[in-house]
Each structure stands twice: as structure tokens, then as C-alpha cells.
């Protein structure tokens, strides 16, 4: 089996508290398990010491010269992955929510070629001690899940998960076309519409160690409207 080039795309906006920790955990994991996950942090115009920490510790990163928001930042990572010929790219949060040990699990369907995009999902099976985010957000996730099923016929249990692995086809697709505002569910609709396969595997997530979620409480209504319309438009695109 040929060695695959794998990169972790880590978007970071004001993550001075945990970005170094996240980086060390990955490097540690690489050493212990003989894996070769490359890292690219995309610093989305952070206003805190994130850039300083990245430079001081020689963490490979791209500094966006302007804040682009999560979609634009992650897309920059996909562009980097595309230009550098990576076989697999993994979206990974810098705030400690995602656990590096699950990376092996979520890239497995891609290596088997049974899926093009794999979502690290919190909801695939019943599992109660897993951190599953707040009640209100779970309602939102269910609504989004319902609309994805409606638009594409595929049930995705955790469409907003930011812990995802994609193969080369999807890297190229995302490098050229990625939703800007609330990217995950919308990009999943576009992947399904292009007849690529999505799989979900169960992962445990931690509560964030620092930083803020990109979804704020008072923006929830706007978020739902925006995502629903975007998914609908995506589903009627040719």
C-alpha cells in the first residue's frame, strides 16, 4: 500500500490558549503511533497572540492577512492541501474539541475507498457520556439533518460537525468552491449532489478548552435561515 500524504487543517481564530496544546498532542501522537499527519494551521486574522505562538514554536501555518471567517479559513487550508498534492485532508479544531486518536478511525473509510467524505459524528449511535452540545443546538442540528434528508435523501446525523476527513476529489472540490458562512452542512449537500459518498463514524468530542464557538446564541435564528436557504440553493444547483 502506498504511503498517503495526510494533512490536518486547523483553522484558528484567537486560539492562543490551546493552539500550542493541540499542536503538541498531534506531534506526540505522530511519534507514538508512527503516523505522518502533517499540520497546517490557518490563522484567520487572530487579534491575540496566536500568530506569535505559531511563529515561536515553528508551527506550520498560513496567516490570513484579513479575517475571512471559518469558511474562508478552512477553504484556504483546502487550497494548500490541493496545491501540495495531499491525498487526505482532515478538518480539525484548534480548541481541543477534537481528539487526535480518532483521526485513524475517520480516515479509514477513505483509505478503503468506501467514502469520499467522512464525518466524525457525535450522534451515530446511542452513547450517553459523550459531549453532545447543548439541547438548543441539538434541536438545530436535527432540523438541519431533516433538511439534508429532504434535499438529498441522505440522513446525516451530525451535519455540523467540524471534524471531517476528505479524499483528493473533495479536496479539489472544496479548494474551488466552499461556502463562506456556515460551511459544514452546505458543503455536505454539495458533495452529495455531486454523487460523492459521505460516511459518519462515531467520535467522542470534548468540551472546548478555550476560544469561542463560531455560533453565537443570538445569531441562531439567522444561522438556521441562512443554512436552510443555502442548502436548498445548493441542492438545486446543476
Amino acid at each position: 500500500m502506498k504511503k498517503r500524504k495526510i494533512v490536518l487543517i486547523i483553522p484558528a481564530y484567537n486560539e492562543e490558549d490551546c493552539i500550542l496544546n493541540t499542536y503538541k498532542k498531534i506531534i506526540d501522537h505522530n511519534k507514538k503511533n508512527n503516523t505522518n499527519y502533517d499540520i497546517i494551521v490557518v490563522n484567520d486574522g487572530s487579534k491575540d497572540r496566536t500568530e506569535l505562538i505559531l511563529n515561536k514554536n515553528k508551527i506550520p501555518h498560513i496567516r490570513l492577512i484579513q479575517n475571512l471567517g471559518i469558511g474562508g479559513a478552512v477553504q484556504t487550508g483546502y487550497k494548500y492541501a490541493c496545491e501540495n498534492n495531499y491525498d487526505i485532508a482532515i478538518q480539525f479544531d484548534g480548541d481541543g474539541q477534537h481528539d487526535i486518536k480518532y483521526v485513524e478511525k475517520i480516515i479509514k473509510p477513505i483509505i478503503d475507498e468506501s467514502a469520499n467524505l467522512v464525518i466524525g459524528s457525535r450522534f451515530v449511535e446511542k452513547d450517553d457520556d459523550n459531549f453532545k452540545s447543548t439541547f438548543a443546538r441539538r434541536i438545530g442540528i436535527n432540523i438541519i439533518s431533516f433538511f439534508i434528508k429532504l434535499f438529498t435523501g441522505k440522513k446525516i446525523y451530525d451535519p455540523t460537525s467540524g471534524f471531517r476527513a476528505v479524499d483528493k476529489n473533495i479536496i479539489e472540490l472544496f479548494a474551488n468552491n466552499y461556502p463562506t458562512e456556515y460551511p459544514e452542512p452546505v458543503s455536505e449537500v454539495s458533495v452529495l449532489k455531486k454523487k460523492y459518498k459521505i460516511k459518519e463514524v462515531l467520535v467522542k468530542m470534548h468540551e472546548r478548552q478555550g476560544g469561542k464557538s463560531s455560533i453565537h446564541a443570538w445569531k441562531n435564528a439567522y444561522y438556521m435561515i441562512n443554512v436552510t436557504i443555502s442548502m436548498f440553493i445548493e441542492s438545486i444547483k446543476r
Binding site: 515553528k58 506550520p60 501555518h61 498560513i62 496567516r63 490570513l64 492577512i65 484579513q66 475571512l68 474562508g72 477553504q75 484556504t76 487550497k79 494548500y80 496545491e83 463562506t180
Partner: peptide, 21 residues
Amino acid sequence: QIRLLIQEISILNSERENKNG
């Protein structure tokens, strides 16, 4: 267009800085 510009410039920038480093 601006988003594209920011992304391209930022990627080029980081590549250049890496080479210099």
C-alpha cells in the same frame, strides 16, 4: 474576489516566509 485575493496572497506569503526561514 477579495476572498480569493486574501487566500492567495496569504498562501504565497507563508510560502515565502518558509523559504526565507
